[in-house]
């Protein structure tokens, strides 16, 4: 087909304009001099300067990062375990139950997850005296619970597509099942584990609804801080904060993608070079 798909190309242009115009507009207005966030009053970087002075924002960002790193690490461990159990252990009692428990949080509306966890924490405090107050621990537990299921799905699908003979080969060469997992399976799926970690990290960093139910006074994460501000309307300092966050994440993701692309290209070159030397 040599005809250029004009219709599809214009849909793409429209679609990407739709994706990026709101974000660009937000970035532009973060440099607005005016206090009125939506009316242009000249160029200024004053809101960024104010951001640096805002202790609340800095504290919230630090807490968010702490929670996100802890969450991502625990979620990767637990999610990987669940993914391995579902993909590799064909018959065990309660397999259907585990598979249901892994998929259910994915489709559970966040409000319900949030409320139910809050009730659990309240009743646990009543019955066993823990958690005494809600904060870092309760938020992290909540985040681990729903982000581990994303990791489990990623790991499970990676394991399903993995060449089983790699594991058989290791076993054939004398490795017990547990060693096979450590020596072969985990290193081979390492990229999936990394993307699972990153996904859990961003999900945790981004979460508002579940955090709003499981956090307590004095434990304000960055999204909760933003949430409490934006409920009151659009303000230029939030524009500046949003710009910082979006650019940080955007550049980070783009950089990661570029590095992965480069590695992939190098690998492809290696393979091409290797294949060309096949002479008996």
């Amino acid at each position: 087909m040599n005809r250029r798909p004009v219709f599809l190309i214009s849909c793409l242009c429209f679609g990407f304009a739709f994706f990026y115009i709101p974000i660009l507009s937000l970035i532009v207005f973060s440099f607005n001099k005016s206090r009125l966030a939506t009316v242009w009053g000249g160029f200024s970087t004053q809101w960024y300067a104010k951001l640096l002075d805002n202790d609340q924002v800095i504290k919230a960002a630090v807490l968010s990062l702490q929670i996100a790193v802890t969450t991502a690490t625990f979620a990767t461990v637990l999610g990987t375990m669940a993914g391995i159990a579902l993909a590799r252990f064909q018959r065990f009692r309660g397999r259907a139950g585990l598979s249901g428990l892994v998929t259910a949080p994915l489709v559970m509306p966040e409000v319900i997850t949030g409320i139910s966890l809050l009730m659990l924490f309240i009743y646990m405090a009543e019955w066993i005296g823990w958690p005494g107050s809600r904060g870092f621990t309760t938020i992290t537990i909540a985040h681990i619970t729903f982000s581990m299921t994303y990791v489990a799905v990623i790991v499970q699908s990676r394991l399903t597509s993995m060449d089983l003979s790699l594991e058989e080969a290791a076993m054939d060469l004398g490795a017990r099942p547990w060693r096979v997992l450590v020596d072969v399976t985990l290193p081979v799926i390492a990229p999936a584990l990394l993307s699972g970690w990153l996904l859990a990290f961003t999900i945790s960093l981004d979460d508002v609804v579940i955090t709003s139910f499981t956090s307590g006074p004095g434990s304000t994460t960055l999204p909760i801080y933003i949430w409490s501000k934006v409920k009151l309307g659009v303000t230029p300092d939030i524009n500046a904060l949003a710009t910082v966050i979006i650019l940080t994440v955007g550049i980070g993701v783009a950089l990661a993608a570029y590095i992965m692309h480069r590695a992939e290209a190098r690998r492809e070159r290696d393979v091409q070079m290797a294949l060309s030397q096949d002479t008996p």
């Binding site: 994706f19 709101p22 507009s25 993701v253």
Partner: peptide, 21 residues
């Protein structure tokens, strides 16, 4: 990449961007 990028950036902030528009 351009489709996935907004997906990684904050959900809340993307909603917020529309409040301004």
């Amino acid at each position: 990449m351009l489709v996935i990028l907004p997906f990684w950036t904050s959900f809340l902030l993307r909603v917020y961007a529309w409040m301004g528009l």
